[in-house]
Design a protein around this nucleic acid. Structure first.
Length: 564
RNA sequence: CGGGGUGUGGCGCAGCUUGGUAGCGCGUCUCGUUCGGGACGAGAAGGCCGCAGGUUCAAAUCCUGUCACCCCGACCA
């Protein structure tokens, strides 16, 4: 490729809308252009990187006996009605009608399409087990796309679906895919990826793992134990919390004028936040009934855990709503719970001498002891895990970290095969329902994370395995005949075995180097007057670790060893 | 969906308070001089000032509406 012909203006100023390094470099380097919120066009360099990532994924999927297929982007709503997701999935699913007024959807994940295909083709046990996968565009109408390619609405994803005759077989295969995913990240040059337990969300099923690229800029929160290796998504993480029980005291009503939040309450009464109890108020999505959670003052309610316990979606209630509660002073004693579902968090179990609300404006109670003063039938874990809590497995201190989800795998079970009436004839002649797993990786997000993980202040440092080109030749001053000839000669010679891009623009050295940094090609060859006079060129690697003069006749050998 | 912010040439921005027919840096094009980390000189092209309506002799500027984008939150395979 001649750089003079490459489309994609590079520029040196940071675009005002970009904050993540990957987003900044993707824009500055001429890799992507935004078309609409969360919708991007890819230019040649980015397209080449995605092709390489896809090739790696494809190889690894083939290694675990995958069969590549291609499902449609546009699917009839009927298929989604069969699985029940047409109703259960929200406005993230883009719905529209075709000219015949049929309801259609844009595929956001392809379980329905996979089952539709498989149920017609895998009627005999002899086909099992099998896995089908595709690499294709998905559309999810995210409420809020952000961060360049990290969180988008339209994206390319590899999604795979496996079908099994037994749970054991699914589990064994699931483990193979887990290993396969770790190989994909490693080969693509993404370090710091860990697999963690996760919530199954709208996919259904029981067991699921997410692959998280650990990074401070990540949107997901992960709980880690450095001593026993426990790791989990915040939404399903468990912990044991620090307890510092006080001696029991008589209950005493105290005047706390205007003190409405835990921080000021603790300060006002001179106690620690964990020596208080607070109430968080939510309402159910189905019947709008109030859900009141009592939790220790220093902890927060995890809404996902709570909604799982309650069984339906819940939303936080604010003071403005029409509820008969004394906000800021809600407490368990003397509370009218007639129309309220009350939940006690595990953090309160066995606590003594707490401060809680008195259900009266400007008053709290001191000296509340759970076992003595309240008749709580069940303590439920609906709290977020905090840094410093103790590991549920080994008791050591937990660490909380941020990450970006770069893949996930689910043991779906029979959720889809059952609802969509997929059966096969087993060895014994009986009709059986296959057990499914599904496995996804977002290609564009992976690309962005690779940059997050591999860059310096000047641009991406592409790992050799996914770099858009392998060799970048700079001709400093191409008005000099010898420089120009040597540059084009190398371009041709190396082009026979490598992917080469040649800067033939005649730009100033600084411009060429800056652009080369933005393109991030692993090996750079600098042809200039001062070294061509000695029959040499300079070869440097993008990561700046190697910089050497090489004789023209040794260039191919040198490049070959650098790219090995 | 709630809160905040921004829309002026490809990119970054000024001008708006106090209305008078648009400007700067980078980039692009031409010519020349340069040539190892974003060079210099001369010249040129490129703007429905997001869009619509209103006020006014006159609107980038004031008013109303609307759209888009960004950030925080809600939400989220």
């Amino acid at each position: 490729m001649l750089l003079s012909k490459l489309l994609g203006e590079r520029f040196k100023e940071k675009p005002s809308e970009a904050f993540l390094d990957s987003h900044i470099f993707l824009l500055r380097g001429g890799y992507i252009r935004q078309v609409a919120n969360g919708i991007f066009s890819l230019l040649m360099p980015a397209k080449r990187v995605t092709q390489k990532i896809e090739a790696i994924i494809r190889e690894e999927m083939d290694k675990v006996d995958g069969q590549e297929v291609l499902f449609p982007v546009v699917l009839p709503a009927d298929l989604w009605k069969e699985s029940g997701r047409y109703e259960s999935v929200g406005s993230e699913l883009l719905r529209f009608r075709d000219r015949a007024d049929h309801e259609m959807v844009l595929g956001m994940t392809h379980e329905e399409a996979a089952v539709h295909l498989a149920r017609g083709e895998a009627k005999s046990y002899t086909k099992y087990p099998f896995m089908i996968y595709q690499i294709q565009t998905k559309f999810r109408d995210e409420p809020r796309a952000r961060g360049g390619l990290i969180r988008v609405r339209e994206f390319t994803m590899k999604d795979a679906y496996s079908f099994h005759r037994s749970q054991e077989d699914l589990e064994a295969y699931y483990d193979r895919v887990y290993e396969s995913y770790m190989r994909i990240y490693e080969r693509a040059g993404l370090k710091n990826v860990i697999g963690i337990q996760s919530d199954t969300g709208m996919m259904g099923g029981k067991v699921a793992h997410e692959f998280m690229y650990l990074s401070d800029g990540g949107e997901d929160t992960i709980v880690l134990c450095d001593s026993c290796g426990y790791k989990s998504n915040m939404d399903v993480a468990k912990s044991r919390i620090k307890r510092d029980p006080l001696a029991e005291q008589e209950i005493e009503k105290v005047h706390t004028p205007g003190v409405k939040d835990i921080e000021s309450l603790a300060k006002f009464l001179g106690v620690k936040e964990y020596q208080t109890m607070k109430a968080s108020v939510f309402f159910r999505a189905d019947n709008e009934k109030t859900v009141l959670v009592f939790i220790r003052g220093d902890k927060q309610v995890n809404e996902l855990k709570l909604s799982k316990h309650v069984g339906v979606d819940i939303y936080p209630l604010t003071e403005s709503e029409d509820v008969d509660l004394v906000f800021g002073y809600i407490g368990p004693k003397g509370l009218d719970t007639k129309d309220i579902q009350v939940v006690y968090d595990k953090s309160l179990e066995g606590e003594t001498n707490l401060v809680c609300g008195a259900n009266e404006e400007d008053y709290h109670l001191k000296g509340l002891s759970l076992a003595r003063d309240l008749d709580v039938k069940e303590f439920v874990d609906v709290a977020t895990v905090d840094e410093g809590d103790y590991c549920i497995e080994c008791g050591n201190t937990l660490r909380v970290s941020r990450g970006v989800e770069v893949g996930n795998i689910f043991q779906l079970g029979t959720t889809y095969s059952e609802s969509m009436n997929m059966t096969y004839t087993d060895e014994d002649g009986k009709q059986k329902t296959p057990i499914m797993g599904c496995y996804g990786i977002g290609v564009g997000r992976l690309l962005a994370c690779i940059i997050e993980d591999n860059h310096d202040e000047y641009g991406p440092i592409w790992p050799k395995s996914v770099a858009p080109w392998q060799v970048h030749i700079c001709m400093l001053n191409n008005t000099i005949e010898e420089v120009k000839n040597a540059g084009f000669d190398l371009y041709e010679r190396l082009g026979k075995n490598y992917e080469v891009i040649l800067d033939d623009r005649g730009a100033a050295a600084g411009v060429q180097f800056a652009d080369a940094d933005l393109l991030g090609i692993p090996v750079r060859i600098i042809v200039s007057k001062r070294n061509i006079e000695n029959g040499q060129v300079e070869i440097v690697t993008r990561d700046k670790s190697i910089k050497k003069q090489v004789a023209l006749e040794d260039v191919e050998a040198e490049v070959s060893s650098l790219l090995k």
